[in-house]
Nucleic acid binder design. Structure first.
Length: 773
DNA sequence: GAGTTTGAAACT
DNA sequence: CAGTTTCAAACTC
């Protein structure tokens, strides 16, 4: 693997640091192109990390710490220059690349990417760390070089940490996804290390075929670069990947996991180390690890890394396909790398993972889209359950990676959003499977009344899964498939082909669907995390900021039931919606439209919005007047679309009631609590918005905030397209990020660290606040 | 738990 | 692209 030309190429590249955002971005894109990566990913890629960042921020110190440490350690140990970071990423992705460089690089890269705003890579901004994802990159590297160090140094800590981690169920919950990943990752690594090649074998087995070295490598690179850009998201993904990644790149995973882990752990305890040292756990957890790994893999496997970097990847398991694809490659590489990582990385990786493991293995990380996320969560679990599944995931990731942009974009979302969500989840449920629990809360809160639905299930829903009969779980009808997750035990589907065994079919089907609709697997709801911040600025922004990309077409549900994707996603309806009598408590379309219109007008875009608004206003005015008012205040309109922007933000999710997802977005919970009733919901909407804002801010505030975005498209329109997102995401660091609600898993990781916690807490707070209200 | 409703996804 | 059908989730009883 390492020998492969790619490696050399990568190595040569590694030095490139420059890339970071721009470079990486371009590089990635180019890479993707070469790879066939879809632009979409780019779209998704959005900076999502913000969330991460945010979470990280909270952790910030923590993150910094970790990063610093990592870097430091690494640096000290290996000293990789930051420059390497880019390279590192790649490496991480590829895993083969130089260990040291990677580690170093990753860090720097991450930082650079993540923090871009602040300072160059060098500075280990907390935010970056948050990005965790970035770390991911590093992680892998670390895994290699760092790990050793980490292990050594951290191991001791790790144990303690681990304990802590374990203790901290929350973390798990929050992180559950992440945690899982981490856990999984770590375990994986551990396994690798401990087991030796098992992990590799597993990986290889599962994904083995899938990965194409080159592609993966390339992807990775691109991914890496992207990661740089999206360091956060990447980190996220990576971390997850790392977890899951074990498979793909252990190193990466490890690395990422480490980073991730760090974040998470650190966030909580800083136990990062503890995680690192998982070795102990390894043995102990070996099984768990495997499980976790599987899960992780499922969630985001290898691809993640890359994608992560890219940004969206994580979002879905979709990545799977890609992931799987690249995954193998990665594996191969990773295998080689693994050895390294294992050797070195083990510790680190393991460490990271261990922590993660601790939590419930199953917990999935969130996925990109809220829905997806939900699905993911559940799926993840599924995946976890099924080793194969996990494998799939990875593969998907690979694909995503390849597609890169798309996934990445999604991933980003996840990160930001998910992270927060996850975190929240954790908070909520920490205890258990996080998501579920969280979901519950969130879901309940979010969806006021009924919601029992999934939430109930909920959250557990993660467990829930699909019950497809005719679609064979190969259509978007299938939540699992839509979420990019393999169907697992929880599923009650018939004739299911969405299983690792049928990976090829799944992937091909997925591709077909994506071909038909590049956004098919993209998060359905975008949130402007940062926008949120902006929002803060503008009360208008509100939750509305997050909007359903495609928009709903509700007629009878008045957008007050889960039938409405917007509502389900916990976001207000937007101009994109074609709903009738919209009463979406998160923000009516009218309002949104009006707001948009305003913006539009200002900007000039406008016409559409105006028209819509008019129409909407007329139509809806009746119903929503109240809501609208509220909404209006709250929702500014952020264009849903701006995926790019939206992606990042997730953190706020809290609002999102989106039930399902494991994530249960904190917000939702908060909201839900309040909102349960429509009336309240209205208030909530306002409140929630405010809350969101607050939340967002908190999250954002911290470090991450930097990014905050702002916005959306100037127009306020939704920018839709992911494509744009691509370009954006990379660049955007700072910009607003859209966040997918759902996906939190990653975020959780982030959250883990601090951000997650913070987020959670914030969410909780919000929830609390809301609740009372 | 069965049956109905709903709206997205898929198909034509 | 619009209309119709299919599908599975959401919801109700």
């Amino acid at each position: 693997m390492q020998d492969s030309p790619l490696f050399s190429f990568i190595d040569s590249l590694s030095p490139i640091e420059p890339l970071k955002s721009a470079y990486s971005g371009n590089g990635l894109q180019a890479y993707h192109q070469s790879l066939n990566v879809t632009s979409v990913s780019s779209i998704f890629t959005s900076p999502h990390h913000n969330a991460h960042k945010e979470s990280k921020l909270s952790k910030g110190s923590f993150a910094d710490y970790t990063e610093n440490e990592l870097c430091m350690e690494e640096g000290t140990d290996k000293n990789k220059s930051p420059t390497s970071s880019t390279a590192v990423r790649l490496f991480a992705c590829t895993s083969t690349i130089t260990r040291e460089s990677h580690t170093m690089t990753t860090c720097s890269v991450n930082e650079g990417i993540v923090d871009p705003p602040k300072g160059p890579n060098d500075l280990p901004q907390p935010g970056r760390f948050d990005s965790g994802s970035p770390d991911h990159n590093t992680a892998p590297c670390h895994g290699v070089s760092v790990r050793s160090d980490l292990k050594q140094d951290k191991c001791p800590k790790l144990e303690a940490v681990q304990t802590t981690n374990n203790t901290v169920e929350k973390r798990k919950c929050l992180f559950s996804t992440d945690m899982q990943l981490q856990d999984g990752c770590q375990p994986a690594k551990e396994n690798n290390e401990v087991m030796g090649c098992e992990w590799d074998d597993l990986v290889s087995v599962t994904s083995g075929e899938l990965l194409a070295f080159d592609s993966s490598m390339d992807q990775h690179h691109t991914g890496v670069q992207l990661a740089v850009n999206n360091a956060e998201s990447c980190g996220y993904l990576l971390s997850k990947l790392a977890g899951g990644a074990d498979i793909s790149d252990r190193t990466h995973p490890t690395t990422s996991s480490q980073a991730y882990y760090h974040e998470m752990v650190v966030g909580e305890d800083k136990t990062e180390n503890g995680q690192l040292f998982p070795e102990d756990k390894k043995t102990i957890l070996s099984e768990e690890i495997q499980d976790n790994i599987n899960e992780e893999n499922a969630c985001i496997p290898l691809g993640c890394k890359v994608e992560t970097q890219q940004r969206g990847v994580r979002r879905r398991c979709l990545v799977f396909e890609a992931a799987g694809y690249s995954h193998r490659t990665v594996q191969k590489e990773s295998a080689g790398d693994l050895s390294f990582s294992t050797c070195k990385g083990k510790s680190s990786a393991q460490n990271h993972r261990n922590p993660g493991k601790t939590p419930s293995p199953h917990v999935f990380r969130g996925i990109g889209l809220h829905l997806n996320a939900l699905a993911l969560t559940s799926k993840d679990k599924m995946a976890c359950q099924d080793p194969l599944a996990t494998a799939l995931v990875p593969s998907l990731k690979t694909e995503q990676v390849v597609h890169g942009n798309l996934l990445s974009a999604g991933g980003n979302f996840f990160h930001s959003g998910s992270g927060s969500l996850d975190l929240q989840m954790d908070n909520d449920d920490c205890s258990v499977g996080g998501f579920l629990g969280n979901d519950h809360n969130s879901s309940q809160s979010s969806s006021p009344p009924k919601k029992r639905r999934k939430s109930d299930n909920g959250d557990d829903d993660s467990c829930k899964r699909c019950s497809c009969k005719k679609s064979k779980c190969l259509k978007l009808y299938c939540e699992c498939f839509a979420a990019g997750v393999y169907c697992s035990e929880p599923c009650s589907c018939q004739g299911c082909l969405n299983k690792p065994i049928h990976e090829e079919i799944v992937l091909s089907t997925r591709k077909q669907i994506e071909f038909r609709n590049p956004l098919a697997f993209a998060p359905k709801v975008i949130r402007m995390s940062e926008a949120g911040q902006e929002t803060q600025e503008d009360p208008k922004n509100t939750p509305a900021s997050a909007r359903h990309k495609r928009g709903c077409n509700c007629k009878k549900s008045s957008c007050l039931k889960k039938y409405c994707e917007c509502y389900q996603g916990g976001v207000g309806c937007s101009n994109n919606c074609r709903c009738e009598t919209c009463k979406n408590t998160f923000g009516t379309r009218d309002v949104a439209v009006s707001a948009e219109n305003e913006e539009m007008k200002q900007e000039g875009e406008q016409t559409e919005s105006c028209e819509k608004e008019k129409e909407n206003d007329q139509q809806k005015a009746n119903v929503h007047s109240e809501d609208h008012k509220l909404v209006e205040l709250v929702v500014p309109i952020t264009p849903p679309l701006d995926v790019s922007s939206s992606l990042l933000k997730q953190p706020n999710f809290s609002n999102a009631k989106p039930p399902r997802p494991c994530k249960a977005r904190s917000g939702s919970s908060s909201r839900s609590s309040k909102a349960s009733v429509t009336v309240q919901s209205r208030k909530i909407s306002k409140v929630g918005d405010s809350v969101f804002i607050e939340e967002m801010p908190d999250i954002l505030r911290e470090p991450s905030s930097p990014g905050i975005v702002k916005t959306c498209s100037p127009n306020g329109k939704r920018v839709s397209p992911p494509h744009n997102a691509l370009s954006i995401s990379p660049n955007r660091k700072g910009g607003r990020k859209l966040i997918l609600k759902s996906i939190p898993s990653f975020p959780s990781l982030v959250g883990d660290t601090n951000g997650g916690s913070a987020i959670c807490s914030s969410d909780s707070t919000t929830a609390l606040a809301l609740g009372p209200s």
